[in-house]
Nucleic acid binder design. Structure first.
Lengths: 200, 200, 200, 200
DNA sequence: AGCTAATCGAGACGGTACGTCTGGTCTTGGA
DNA sequence: TCCAAGACCAGACGTACCGTCTCGATTAGCT
């Protein structure tokens, strides 16, 4: 029962780095497995051996060390609105880089193209972030920074959806004031009337 | 200088219909100009003559008669929340069809791929809808269904972003109750406190 | 009922010429359809469209304008031995060129590899030559330059087999004296005893 | 200086046997070192260690125990024509088997491809047989079964070339009557006129 | 008995060529 | 001048082999 040669970690990392670089330069559609292999100094068969398709390697490259890993957890300073603003602004500044924009667009294209990638993206990236957001909102609700009947899932979806719309629209990324307006819209100060209460 | 034969309207419509059909069956990445030409009974050169690229014909097909045109304007019954719920639900039911989902995903992929398509999409589709939404919200603000300082742009972006997130996530389309929660979150009954007013 | 573009004669000839050139340079095994296409300035698909395989194009290239077409018919001067010697010597000098040797070896390799090529080679090349040889021998028999019971098929096969053996052996091509010996062996002067006749 | 492990004779024989089997099944061009290694249950590196190339292993497999070794020497019963007929017929029946045909074609292809194989083939196989033939013919000449001026080299080449032509042609292997005609053509009964003797 | 070194089967590596498919262009003959 | 058909060049696709390079596991001779 012989072992055979081990998978080359060098090749794996070179392939992912080359993919990220080419994704930034060319975008998902114009990228080529030939180009990735050439840039990484790796055989084409090696890419097929370990990833099997362009979509898979792109997803892995974008998620492993690309977009996802540098994101910080949402702070819990006790100030929900401040924490959300900080988190959203960090996101925006992260995506505002050319690399961030390219990788995000590439992931969107790959997800639209391939259900498996979409699932992986959700499982490894979107889902954890959404869950983190819901957890932070739930904690805020417990300390009465949100009304007891606040719908944390809807709030989380609205925050992420807003970012998504602005990124994909590529017209203009949200400024700090846009983030302020967003947070103010969906998270009112506790003690603000909610429901039919105090007429003005 | 002879005038020559006129452009064949039959061919144009057949090409667009074939593109839509194949988009639904295959998605943006897997579609082929050969396949469009064959299904439409049209020469391949004819597609290049009038559209010039795969992206252009896909965008035209999806926008002209595909996703966009069947949408109704937002009603103005005087009841903002009801009107928004109706509009959002109509949108959801429109996208919930297989054809609607496929065309939306195809447009997303094409937009991620190609800035020109993204611009066209915004100009002919997203922009008008957002503008319509802002106009409806502004009218509501005038009749005091929204606070005077409400940020209609942010509200509009949030509503669209929420839909976008749910569609692209492909986990599950929003139910009527999700739409209710969304509308309740961003459009409070007039008289609700809004702004920095009360407690500190 | 439209016609479509005609097959490009330019491309066809360029492909065959490039194949011959590369066959001489590289030999059958080391030749590449990529290389043929590149040298001919022709798309690779065009080669597959019209020939379908490396073997087919090699056979066509070697037969059409390569080895076969320049061969003269066997003369009929009335002198069988002289005519055969001339024909054999012409053959040897033809094959003795680098191009002739390479093409012959390539055809042999291709025939060993592929029955279809072997059949085509026989039908378009070997067969006609053998038939021509048989016809010349039969005419000689009619004018009593060969015995009435001479087996023209065997003689023809022996002449061709001798050449084949010397060419494939690649040790040394037959000289004029070898050709003389061969002709003397298989074609005796009429009037020479044949059979049990004149004991010595 | 320790010695290390010895070469595995088991592996060597398994490799040669697998090569012969695959040569029969697939032919020279379609054979694969992967396939040989897999069938022999041998590592690929072992093949390269001991033979170094596909051509080398194929030549070794075909010559060692394949085509060559089973051939008997030419008998010397005193009857030259009978001995030649027996030898040729044995050859034909040997090659007429599927295995014999495949191995012969494989050797031809390999020789056309590779000069080193061609040389080895001549040295280990064709050469010895031709030499054996020449020796038998020379002995016959000494006992006056051939004319004193008979060219034994040409006769030997003619006999081998005839076989080669029939085998490679693959149209039909020579029957016993063809062998008779061949022998009668090149070996006339002593006492037959030979040379420029009689008529002018 | 332990050491040392060459061998073994297995299998990943960087490459090259395969045969196919598509993109975008050009040509043909008919309307 | 447009159209359907279809050949053209270019180049990416995913697969199959090549010849090389690790791996860990056997074998031996030499100490």
């Amino acid at each position: 029962m012989a072992a055979g040669r081990k998978r080359s970690e060098t090749s794996r990392l070179a392939a992912l780095a080359a993919t990220r670089a080419l994704l930034v330069e060319l975008g998902y559609e114009r990228i080529t497995l030939d180009a990735i292999a050439a840039r990484a100094g790796v055989g084409r068969q090696t890419l097929y051996r370990w990833w099997g398709s362009k979509g898979a390697i792109v997803a892995d490259a974008a998620l492993a060390g690309g977009v996802a890993t540098e994101l910080r957890p949402i702070a819990d300073s006790g100030d929900l609105r401040g924490d959300l603003r900080a988190w959203l602004n960090e996101w925006v500044s992260h995506v505002a880089t050319p690399e961030g924009t390219s990788l995000t667009l590439a992931l969107t294209a790959a997800s639209s193209d391939n259900q498996a990638i979409a699932d992986q993206l959700y499982e490894r990236f979107t889902g954890p972030h959404e869950e983190q957001l819901r957890a932070r909102l739930a904690r805020a609700r417990e300390v009465d920074q949100l009304p007891a009947d606040a719908d944390v899932s809807t709030i989380a979806a609205v925050l992420i959806g807003f970012l998504l719309y602005r990124i994909l629209g590529r017209q203009r990324l949200p400024a700090a004031s846009d983030v302020d307006a967003l947070v103010s819209l969906v998270v009112r100060r506790q003690g603000d009337g909610h429901g039919e209460a105090a007429r003005h």
